[in-house]
Design a protein around this nucleic acid. Structure first.
Length: 806
RNA sequence: GGGCGGGUGGCGGAAUUGGUAGACGCGUCGGACUUAAAAUCCGAUGAGACUUAUACUCUCGUGAGGGUUCGAUUCCCUCUCCGCCCACCA
């Protein structure tokens, strides 16, 4: 038994207040040390307490940040609260309180939980996105974008519910008799045109694509950004609709234009109304358009493709001059390309499906490969049935026809993107007010008197589909720059707003004159490592990059790319391997129990040990016991510390430990770093004494993982009688190692014959190739297997393996 | 449908990037301690064969099949299953 007992509560209560009172994890502006900005996505307090998923997301990045501090970096590891938006609002509704009330409480509780976990956070930099001194700058930045014409009021089709306002596609369900109802409350929902603020991120599509080259994101992250932008090169081809005019179609395959057997237009296309007027079957068309308006995007794609021909409308093929039928079809998306397509059934599967259904001609214009079966071919090949282009390769024709189209003035080279502009308005209460004013002339003015403070409301739910702020006349009614009565914008910003730039506010959180000092931003940006949720790898990352780039171009931020590097964390599953969720609390891990029964160090250790950071894996309640046990064994090791010189075995074990853990902490393989610690602890059981220098280094190796225990033992080892921050183990250097001492004196070299291990030799670590071969051929099992045969070849990989080929 | 990951013991996962597959941990089995249990500590533990048994030794083994190589969990091809994200994107 150890003379000291591991009492996690006592230790934690002893050191925690000292660390945070002296802010030992302070990130120093303009320090001469090289900086490392380590960022983990800030939580949104949507529940009463930090949950196990949060702990998963923060523990490994935090261990990494501690390691870097011990390697001599000036580390910033900040934390804040993303408070605006639906999660907090929903939480407030559930609690029967206002968002302000639940946020104030959750912020406190979350902070306490993080401090209990011992997270090495510089709390002087804490931010809360819903505080006026923060969102003042969110509003400021928005106005900067608005000044540049990047924010625009735009009319667009939305799901509209009288009770709830605008709803997202997934919030709308099918009701009885082809009606639509809201997911929450079951209120009737209709499709309606609605004016909303949009941010023109699409203007930055190319820059955001190219900007990826300046980052070291993991390939999977870069790829998801690239796919989200979805750059497509193709052509615009104009089709003449008689009596209406030229309508452009976008296609990536202009080489198939001679295969066009119909054209189709989205029911939401602006020209549809004039088409209906001119058509001879207007009532059929109107009925179809109305029906299409009630379908959600999901329903449209699940059902068979449909459309109605606009009879009496003449469309001429731009090359052949033939008449081609025009359809209104809801598989044509209004917001991709031009909302109008040329139908080439022979070479596009969607057009094929549509043409088959309506008996339209399928004109083959590209020769299919010999071994190809079927009517639909979307590859390249020899061009046929295409007049002067016959015989060309379709890939060459694409280039040729684009220049021909340009000469003829009926088309051009065109690039299109999948990326959509961002809807920047919610008809909700709990968000940043958009700091704009509508004048009585219908103009829009900025309100530079920031912050435009969100009024405190007891009743904050939308009523009659109106944004809640509409009901606060004393807030809405204001005056414009000329002193005339005017009205404030009542929509608020979406959840993305605050999280677009929170990492910049950490740099200078108290600044009243700017969102952050430019020189400080120059010192800290870009973020060196950004850890976060897989679900945020596309949208959040993209929007934040856009926001920063747009402000960079105005000279307000020194770097075009906010994040140098990005890694996605996995999820913690329940013990039975199922996803943890609120509906299945029996499988979830209660952080309070964990901290109470095993302490922060064991909790940290087990969360980092169960698996690699980027993977999803199940919780194991036995593993936390194992980690707790290791900590106790470390205490027992302390009893053996003496000045007795370390044995060679001990020195090798120690130097290996330092070497391996250094590599693993650096490369975020904390699960295996903990294995190395366990190996060392196990080995120490065979030693009568542990040399004090070795012990000293060992404590510094474990400090990033188990900060409380490490501090306790470090302070006791050094006999410090009173607390002084400079003596904290967490401000010491990570130990160094001696490469020569990472090797054992005697190593085992396996000997293979034709790739199969037939013997294992114990040889001196610095044995020469000749000595190893000699030993191998002297081995009885080897001679037995060789059976007198002459080796054809002998391959020796130094210190690793000897392979004899016969 | 598209994209991205992944498939290794009973389980979570290792494998220095082409060099002894299964580190470390859980579980299981055996032992110590205990009146007993829990806790703790020590040992064994991929499957199979040979052997009375141990040791020795051998065979098979990283989703399936094939290939490259002295040597493949790792590289290449075909197939298959699972997870995540996006999804009528012209």
């Amino acid at each position: 038994m150890s003379s000291r007992n591991y009492d996690h509560k006592k230790i934690e209560q002893n050191w925690r207040p000292k660390w945070f009172a002296d802010n030992i994890y302070k990130a120093v502006d303009f320090s001469e040390k090289p900086k490392k900005y380590i960022l983990a996505e800030l939580p949104y307090p949507s529940g009463p307490y930090l949950h196990a998923g949060h702990m998963m997301r923060y523990t490994v990045p935090e261990i990494h940040s501690r390691f870097l501090r011990m390697k001599g970096y000036n580390v910033m590891f900040p934390m804040g609260w993303d408070c605006f938006g639906l999660p907090a609002e929903t939480f407030a509704i559930k609690e029967g309180k206002t968002p302000q009330e639940v946020i104030a409480q959750a912020e406190k509780d979350f902070k306490v939980a993080m401090q209990r976990m011992g997270y090495a956070i510089d709390w002087d930099r804490e931010v809360n996105t819903s505080k006026p001194d923060y969102y003042k700058w969110t509003q400021f930045m928005f106005l900067k974008l608005w000044e540049q014409g990047l924010a625009e009021l735009r009319e667009m089709p939305v799901w509209w519910c009288k009770e709830l306002g605008v709803l997202a596609d997934e919030e709308v369900l099918a009701g009885p008799n082809n009606t639509k109802v809201s997911e929450r409350g079951g209120y009737p929902v209709e499709r309606k045109m609605f004016k909303q603020w949009n941010l023109k991120i699409t203007e930055y599509a190319d820059k955001l694509l190219k900007g990826l080259d300046d980052t070291d994101y993991m390939d999977s992250v870069k790829l998801s950004q690239t796919n989200w932008i979805g750059k497509k090169e193709g052509a615009r081809i104009d089709f003449e609709i008689e009596g209406i005019g030229k309508v452009p179609a976008f296609t990536t395959r202009p080489d198939t234009v001679f295969g066009v057997s119909f054209v189709a237009i989205s029911p939401e296309h602006p020209l549809v109304s004039s088409i209906v007027q001119k058509a001879t079957n207007a009532s059929d068309l109107t009925a179809y358009i109305q029906k299409a308006a009630t379908l959600s995007d999901l329903e449209k794609q699940q059902k068979e493709k449909t459309g109605v021909e606009a009879k009496g409308i003449v469309v001429k093929h731009p090359f052949t001059g033939n008449d081609i039928p025009l359809f209104i079809a809801d598989y044509i998306l209004a917001d991709f390309g031009t909302g109008f397509i040329m139908g080439v059934p022979a070479h596009d599967d969607r057009d094929f499906e549509f043409a088959s259904k309506y008996g339209l001609p399928i004109i083959k214009v590209i020769q299919t490969p010999n071994d190809f079966e079927g009517d639909l071919y979307d590859g390249d090949g020899e061009v046929i049935n295409s007049q002067q282009y016959n015989g060309m390769n379709s890939a060459d024709m694409r280039t040729k026809i684009i220049s021909d189209l340009e000469q003829m003035g009926i088309g051009s080279k065109e690039v299109t993107y999948k990326l959509r502009d961002q809807i920047w308005a919610r008809q909700r209460y709990w968000g940043e007010p958009i700091p704009l004013i509508h004048t009585q002339d219908g103009d829009i003015e900025a309100d530079y008197n920031l912050p435009v403070v969100l009024p405190e409301l007891k009743e904050f739910l939308p009523v009659d589909g109106q944004a809640p702020l509409t009901k606060v006349p004393e807030w809405v009614n204001t005056t414009d720059s000329k002193g005339r009565p005017a009205k404030r914008e009542v929509d608020t910003m979406p959840t993305w707003a605050g999280s677009n730039w929170y990492f910049i506010r950490y740099i200078d959180p108290q600044n009243d004159d700017a969102f952050a000092d430019y020189e400080k931003m120059k010192y800290w940006l870009p973020v060196d490592r950004y850890f976060g949720d897989g679900g945020h790898t596309t949208a959040h990352l993209m929007y934040s990059r856009f926001w920063v780039r747009a402000l960079y171009e105005q000279g307000l931020i020194p770097t075009p790319e906010p994040f140098k590097w990005r890694m996605t964390g996995g999820l913690l599953l329940g013990e039975d391997g199922t996803k943890m969720s609120k509906s299945k609390p029996e499988y979830s891990v209660d952080p309070k129990d964990l901290l109470e029964n095993y302490g922060a160090d064991a909790a940290r250790m087990v969360l980092a040990f169960l698996g690699p950071y980027s993977e999803t894996f199940p919780w194991n309640s036995r593993s936390v016991v194992a980690c707790y046990r290791v900590i106790r064994q470390i205490y027992e090791m302390f009893d053996k510390v003496s000045d007795t010189p370390a044995s060679k075995t001990q020195l090798v074990a120690y130097n290996k430990l330092v070497k391996n853990t250094e590599y693993m902490y650096e490369n975020l393989k904390v699960n295996t770093a903990i294995s190395e610690i366990m190996i060392f602890v196990n080995a120490s059981k065979d030693w009568d004494t542990v040399n004090s220098q070795v012990w000293n280094g060992f404590l510094r190796v474990i400090a990033p993982v188990v900060p409380f225990v490490a501090e306790e033992l470090w302070q006791e080892t050094h006999g410090y009688v009173s607390w002084d921050a400079v003596n904290s183990i967490h401000l010491q250097d990570f130990p160094t190692f001696d490469e020569a001492l990472t090797l054992d004196d005697v190593i085992e070299v396996p000997v293979q014959i034709n790739g199969k291990v037939r013997a294992k030799l114990s040889v001196n670590a610095n044995a020469t190739e000749e000595q190893v071969k000699e030993a191998a051929f002297a081995n009885s099992n080897i001679t037995k297997w060789l059976d007198g045969q002459e080796p054809k070849k002998v391959i020796y990989i130094t210190g690793r393996i000897l392979n004899i080929v016969v």
